[in-house]
Amino acid sequence: MTAQPILQVVDLKKHFPIRKGVLQRVAAKVHAVDGITFHVNAGETLGLVGESGCGKSTAGKTILKLIEPDSGTVRLMGERIDALSPREMWPYRRQLQVVFQDPYSSLSPRLTAGAIVAEPLENFGIAKGKEARERVAWLFEKVGLRAEQMAKYPYEFSGGQRQRLGIARALAVRPKLIVADEPVSALDVSVQAQVVNLLMDLQEEFGLSYLFVAHDLAVVEHISHRVAVMYLGKIVEIADKKSIFAAPKHPYTEALLSAAPLPDPTTKRKRIVLAGDVPSPVNPPSGCRFHTRCPYAIDRCKTEEPVLREAATGHQVACHLR
């Protein structure tokens, strides 16, 4: 029996109602997250990839309880947090932190950098006054900022520096798990590498686990230990990094990987170009959600929904054909 996972998510669902008319009747639902199951082990990074609109960010926010889940269970170190009230959730926030995508809107514009990073320390009564300032200075150094910069305001920092501030804030309470919601997508490529490497260094030093939400496959390949691929609110494939990048099993993963740019432009490979757009999550296709665009679809795919099953050791895939 292996150690207990840090995060265990089972059949998590989040549907957003679309309300219409004077009485605000629910006319339809956006199936943003439609029953996903996965876990994150201690000290591990799980990359959660998918196209925009596939529900990967909603999944992250639901786990953080910034959005209430509709059903399913979320266990943080074995304890259920999915049904907790905000007050009951409060102690668990010390174990579970977040880094957002946009380094501009994720920092209060009217607070100093030092105050932003100190806020979680004050909230949990970890440190106050001088002690808090020393702790913040230490955190600044840890994320590659200088302690003198504590008195500056967010607008005085560059995008990469702001993201380092966001990481320092998340790190302040020494969490077990950080949900990183596209933490480098808004940064320049050269800065992306620095921030990703910083996250990896911090993981090693503090034994952090990451749920790393992203759409950039190169970044995910670099940072992740395992990768989960999402399509229209469902996880279609989960495996360790090596097997997913070397031998993807799901047709969607194949297409996604073939679309990622390669560093060497002379390399020839077969690109799988999918027909049409991603169907609307308001009325997702019957059966396998991918059947409308899948090059291998058979009749069974239109009627029967494939379950996520173990196709090889540690390699789960939701497809009738593989």
Partner: peptide, 25 residues
């Protein structure tokens, strides 16, 4: 705004969010 969501995730109470993050704006 993400900075308010970040405050919620950092364990900041609703009252503190109101006077620290919302009121000044």
């Amino acid at each position: 705004q993400p900075f308010v969501e970040a405050a919620v995730a950092s364990g900041t109470s609703t009252v503190k969010i109101l006077y620290r993050h919302i009121l000044p704006n």
